[in-house]
Amino acid sequence: MVDVRKHKSNTANRKVVMGLSGAALAMLALGFASKPLYDAFCRVTGYGGTTRVAEQMSEIVTERAIKVRFDANVASNLGWTFKPEDVAITVKLGQNALAYYTATNDSEYPIVGTASYNVSPIKAAPYFSKIECFCFTEQRLEPGETVSMPVLFFVDPLLAEDTRLDEIKTITLSYTFHKVERPSEKPNTAVERQAQLKKLEAIDLEIPKQTNTPANTKNNTQINQQGRG
């Protein structure tokens, strides 16, 4: 009598334990998976001020102007001076703009750095599209070297249609340079940067005047593969 009951309850217990252990393991896996999930979430929603990366330049300009401020920070263990060439510029929505930062390696040895970035206010992030940026690659600076680093961007005209952003007149683009302890095979050096600068300066930023409303010509904005939340 007792044995029968025991046998039955063992099977039932085993079933429950399997289910519960599965649930606990699933939550553990979710904890680790949160890293890629969180990155993807930031890129898709612009959470934390994660910007977009566009493959093509903007093709429409609208009349609404917006001020873009540039902010620069350096991690405490990186011996660089890093600042924007202009503190702020005013652009029209959809206008392709080129801005420069200047970085100097003040130390006595070459350092590889990489920049993390976001924009503020956070809700403007999904409309801030970078086409080309020094933050996409690691940068190697020789001792004493001073370089000019470009960022080519536009503010998506779709911003005008988002009523949550009606009061936005200023967007701040912020960078923080960090030291890379274990650099990749090919960080950008003077040679690559020269070539890139030449290429960017040769681009015609002007867009022929159009009367299109922004709604029917959405700029080709793509999700950044290297985005940092």
Partner: peptide, 14 residues
């Protein structure tokens, strides 16, 4: 406990 502690464990291991 069952659903929240594994997440803490993951965070602590990271």
């Amino acid at each position: 406990l069952l659903l929240s502690l594994p997440v803490l464990a993951a965070a602590l291991i990271m």
